[in-house]
Amino acid sequence: MTDPMTRRPFSPARAADPASPAPPRAVPAPAAEGQPAVRSIPGSGTARRHVLVAVVNNRPGVLNRVANLFRARNFNIESLAVGHTERPDVSRMTITLRGDDVAVEQVAKQLYKLIDVLKVQDVTAEPRIEHELALIKVRATNSTRSEVLKIVELYKGRVVDVAADSVIVEATGTEDEIDALVALVGGFGIREMVRTGTTVMVRGPQVVEYEGVAK
């Protein structure tokens, strides 16, 4: 029998995996002369941005379970994008959030407690493609339109709709790239914008693997 724990490691940190014991975290520091020792509180370390991939059963209510877990557990997520995969019975979520490694590990462990969650992987340390899609309706009159188009071209965006006094710009790229484009066209006036949230895929042959899927 394979060790069930190694079947769903929380990679790459594998901090939850007893196979590679985490370096002792927050061992009470030896008390400095005259100072009482203090036990550190999990999750109180330095926060940074993490990107998690969650593979889940494609069933009614699963998104609700995940979203509800974030709310109930007081986890602050920055974005959540969900969609179909190569398998019709499986959906995939990309979750971006800020926290220290322990806090993010706790998010993953809580996600695993949902029966419909098949795999959680932290890809923060992996080389990856991280893209989102944005549609931006920018004010564009006869006098400004060409300037708008020039900026959009520069940022590898696409104009997908043109009306008398506005254009719809479609852009894909990293959050930062889209932020930059938004800042630039912002000067002309943004009438409406929608962004999908980040989706991610690890570069190279590596894939997010999971075992078995509910029938």
């Binding site: 724990m5 007893p18 927050a26 509180i41 999990p42 322990v102 706790q106 462990k109 695993y112 407690k113």
Partner: peptide
């Protein structure tokens, strides 16, 4: 429950 380990206090050997 792996989620209980390291949730409330930091531990040395989970």
């Amino acid at each position: 429950d792996p989620a209980e380990v390291g949730k409330n206090v930091s531990v040395d050997v989970p």
